[in-house]
Amino acid sequence: MIETDELLSIRAAELYYEENKTQDEIGSILRLTRWKVGRLLAQAKASGFIRIEIVHPRARRLPVERRLRDATGLTDAIVVSAAGVSGDDELQSRTAQAAADYLASLRPIPRTLGISWGRTLHDVSLHLKQDWAPGVNVVQINGGVSLNKRAGTAATTAVTIAHKASGSATLLPSPAILERLETKQAIESDRAVAAVLEMAAGASAYLYSAGQADEHSALVDSGYLTADQIAELVQKGAVGDIVGRYIDSAGNIVDPALDERTIGIGLDQLRAAKLAIAVIAGNSKHAVARAVVGSRLCSVLVTDEDTARAILGEDL
């Protein structure tokens, strides 16, 4: 009897989803009541015989979001579909679009938004619509003055986000990492820099991304670190960086000396923030995404479904 019901549920599902038959029509074909057809369809779905996939680029994976919130304690999780994605650039674009949508939906609107910089955040700024919010002031939370011509998105990102919100941008006029500790201390003691750091520490919300620990890091592209230096950090346990600070799988700083020469807010400030939105996507960032969520460096995560499943341990 159980096998008969299973076969009927599969047949009912085929007629309903593939032949576009109504439940009344299915009842007539299978000589069942409409109520019985409805029960068979529910049984097919509960048994995992039916898999519905929404393939629109802005589709979200709501069941994965629920599991992620329940398992990690995140305030919110936004998980985009990876269906039909042709490469990492498209996946990052989808995730950046989701982050832009989430940012625009925030209520209450953050009066001061602290942001990091990098390719992902730059993509978010491009996806934001004009007038996404009224009068949001944007402040850089870590140094980002370019050391070469290939990367120079820190100021552009902040200005773009602020301009589209009819607000103002406060830039941090400093490199991300200094070679000498005394130079970093001197810069931080400058009145203008200190004022920006104070504003960053008091931001209403934070928006930032994570960098992978390899030669493709934005900090390597920007000239702050070399590929060999990244390799040394990996040997110390680094899985990636947050606001320029390299962390291990438990969310701890892997190189205190390097961290002391890094300008910007500290990780403890992110952990203490009421609203800290991390935007992380791509296979190369699974490890750092696990570290960020596991060590509570964010309260909201915007990511792709493969990264979300990796955090949940469902990628095996």
Rank of each mutant, 00 (worst) to 15 (best):
S86H: 05
Q92S: 06
S93Q: 06
A96Q: 03
Q97D: 05
A104N: 02
S105N: 03
S105W: 02
R107D: 12
R107K: 10
T112P: 00
L113M: 08
S116V: 07
W117S: 02
T120H: 02
T120K: 05
T120A: 03
H122Q: 13
D123C: 04
L128T: 14
K129H: 14
Q130D: 15
D131M: 07
D131E: 13
W132I: 08
G135S: 14
N137P: 00
Q140F: 05
Q140L: 15
V145N: 04
S146A: 15
L147I: 10
L147D: 04
N148E: 03
N148Y: 04
T153K: 03
T156V: 15
T157M: 08
T157K: 05
A162V: 14
A165S: 15
A169W: 13
T170I: 14
L171A: 09
P175H: 09
A176Q: 11
L181Q: 13
E182N: 09
T183Q: 14
T183Y: 09
T183A: 12
K184L: 10
K184T: 09
K184A: 11
Q185A: 12
I187Y: 06
I187S: 01
I187G: 00
S189A: 12
D190G: 02
R191S: 13
R191Y: 05
A194K: 13
A194T: 06
E198F: 02
E198H: 11
A200W: 05
A200S: 13
A200C: 01
S204L: 01
L207G: 01
Y208F: 15
S209L: 04
S209D: 12
H216V: 02
A218D: 15
L219S: 09
S222Y: 07
